[in-house]
Lab assay of single mutants.
Amino acid sequence: MGFKLLSKLLVYLTASIMAIASPLAFSVDSSGEYPTVSEIPVGEVRLYQIADGVWSHIATQSFDGAVYPSNGLIVRDGDELLLIDTAWGAKNTAALLAEIEKQIGLPVTRAVSTHFHDDRVGGVDVLRAAGVATYASPSTRRLAEVEGNEIPTHSLEGLSSSGDAVRFGPVELFYPGAAHSTDNLIVYVPSASVLYGGCAIYELSRTSAGNVADADLAEWPTSIERIQQHYPEAQFVIPGHGLPGGLDLLKHTTNVVKAHTNRSVVE
């Protein structure tokens, strides 16, 4: 069995187990497998329904001669939608809004960016022009300005110390501490036991640490421990890039980060 097929099978099995364990909360999309990078042309966006009122959005972007996937989250909030992270750029984010209108038909009224990198804030200006209120932590807003990236308009308070959590509509926002970046936030959907790890969490097929220019490698494993301790009931975990899975993604990420750190020390 090929690795790609095995990865998709694991996603399907995880979703099936969740649907059985929580039949009222989960209505997993039966329309197909989780979209992969090879299936999404740059400039297009796919939506994948995880649970009743919960979707991931998947886009792709060219970077350094390669094409990478990027995940975000959409959560229903009454007759409105909360968006977590842009679709990595203005063109993708405009396509995301169009796809949401086509498939869901509810307005996106608020959006949260989970850290300051372009795959999370690139497209904020498109959201703002569409009347979406954009939010991020003060740290993310400051770092985005320093980096020359787009800056969300509103500040999220109460997320300055490791372990801080605040309720934001249908989700809980959690600051686990520094990891992929010093400002990275985690998003949890309690009604569906869905954990969105953003770039602080890796997919299972990833074996290298990737972009760690703004990471705190020493603190990252401790931050992941905080996530595990705060959300032990999480059933569906979405990484910032690639295929979702279960809580095993947290341990896998820790292993990859520690291996990278150990290699760096040896070198």
Rank of each mutant, 00 (worst) to 15 (best):
A179P: 02
L106A: 13
K91E: 14
M1F: 03
V132A: 09
T207F: 06
V67Y: 07
I151Q: 04
I238Q: 03
D79C: 08
L97D: 00
L73M: 15
Y48K: 08
L97S: 03
E33L: 12
R46H: 15
R46E: 07
D214N: 08
F236T: 10
N211M: 14
I224Q: 01
P190W: 05
A133R: 12
L249M: 07
T114L: 00
T93L: 00
N71W: 02
D216I: 14
L159V: 14
G123H: 03
G163C: 03
D214T: 14
V187G: 05
G246H: 08
I238C: 03
V126Y: 12
D77R: 04
D164S: 10
A59C: 09
Y188N: 04
G89T: 14
S30G: 10
P176M: 04
E150Q: 10
D119T: 01
N255R: 09
V28I: 12
T253V: 00
I17P: 04
H241T: 00
P190N: 05
V124K: 02
T36D: 14
V166C: 05
L106W: 14
L83W: 01
F63R: 14
E33Q: 12
S22V: 11
T93A: 01
R206D: 10
H260E: 12
K258T: 11
Y135M: 04
L5M: 05
A144D: 04
N149P: 14
D52F: 06
T253I: 04
G123L: 03
W88N: 00
Y202F: 05
L217M: 05
N262Y: 10
W220V: 00
I40M: 07
A98S: 13
P170H: 14
V121W: 00
S162A: 10
A213H: 09
L173Q: 00
N262K: 09
G78S: 09
V112F: 07
A144W: 03
T93F: 01
V237M: 04
S161E: 14
E44Y: 15
D29N: 07
L143C: 07
S161A: 12
E39I: 08
Q49S: 13
D29H: 06
G177V: 01
G105H: 15
P69L: 11
D77N: 05
H230P: 04
A218D: 13
A66Q: 13
D214G: 10
L81D: 00
A215T: 06
V146D: 11
E172S: 10
Y135W: 07
E172G: 03
E44K: 08
T134H: 04
A213N: 12
T14Y: 15
V187W: 01
E145N: 10
H252Y: 04
P152H: 04
I201K: 00
A129I: 15
D183F: 00
T222G: 12
A98P: 10
L159T: 05
P239E: 01
A234I: 06
P244N: 04
I84E: 00
N262G: 09
P41D: 11
A215P: 04
K258M: 13
T253G: 01
S31M: 11
A98K: 15
A15Q: 15
W220S: 00
V189M: 05
I227M: 15
I74W: 02
A95V: 13
S191M: 10
G105S: 15
V37H: 06
S264V: 13
I50M: 08
V212E: 12
S205Y: 15
G72E: 02
E203V: 03
G89M: 00
V257D: 00
S208F: 06
V171T: 08
S161H: 11
D183E: 10
L9T: 06
P69G: 10
G43C: 04
Y34Q: 11
V171Q: 01
H154D: 10
S223T: 06
L106D: 14
P138H: 08
Q228W: 14
N92E: 05
E150L: 05
N71L: 02
G105V: 14
I186F: 06
R206A: 07
G72V: 01
L6R: 06
N92W: 01
P35Q: 14
S22E: 10
T153R: 13
L13W: 09
E157P: 13
E267T: 15
S223F: 03
L185D: 01
G210L: 05
L82D: 03
I50N: 05
